[in-house]
Nucleic acid binder design. Sequence first.
DNA 1: CGGGAAGCCTGGGCGC
DNA 2: TGCGCCCAGGCTTCCC
Length: 290
Amino acid sequence: MPELPEVEVVRLGLADHVLKRTIDTVVVEHPRAVRRHIEGGADFAARLAGRSITAARRRGKYLWLELDDESEAVLTHLGMSGQMLIAGPERPVDKHRRVRVRFADDGPELWFVDQRTFGGLSVHPLVPIAGGELLPEPVAHIARDPMDPAFDLDAAVAGIRRRRTGIKRAILDQTVVSGIGNIYADEALWRSRLHWARPTETITRKQGRELLTAATEVMNEALAVGGTSFDALYVNVNGASGYFDRSLDAYGQVDRPCRRCGTPIQRDAFMNRSSFSCPRCQPRPRNAHP
DNA sequence: CGGGAAGCCTGGGCGC
DNA sequence: TGCGCCCAGGCTTCCC
């Protein structure tokens, strides 16, 4: 599923293929894909026609393409299954194609394909945040991610320790630290030997720093091999999968031996989904947070 | 206000 | 073979 490394792979691909190109026409093929563009699909398409793309940026799991006068951007969230594909004439039509962007140069198109339709595209003004950085409006409240040069590790740890909840909930909160989803949360917790239900008030500053450092490292390792693909739902802009699923130590590894101690990895229900952990390396705390 | 949970959505996998 | 159910889970919305 697209978390920070997967979205960054897509951003790099878009930077290679759509920068400085001028949009000709946009076809919205499924209204749900532009539901966050409140003015509607016709306005979305009209607003993009004739604009050129000047930058491809990302914060956490949000990705945006800046438009020529630098006052607006096309914001993308891939949700669970969104794909941004560079589509030459040889690419077969995809039944889950939701938005199609044609360029004035008649080169490869940009397709937004999304099976589960949790993702979408929308155009927003760029607004300045403290420090002067320009972000699309809906991204303004999202915290910096660990790959951001201005990421403040100690501030993020302080943010975690301020929360009154379980440690995994805290690192999944995109307003505390962004980019981490269920996969990399479980991997970072396994590397740090912390149980997902550890109350944030029992996390020391040192443990907090170790946890976020582990998250940063695991996401960098995943980025280096193209991200994590369990199925064909996550692919880069050329439709290729990443390889990090082969390097996972916890996520999805139920009943497989822990790489450190050999104890079978267990799966727990958590927030209506799953958490994977080693019951020996990551013992459940007595005062576990529900 | 902050925390927690329901709801959105589709297709693959499973049991019967 | 086919039906119904469960599961994947990021984010928004609603409720306490």
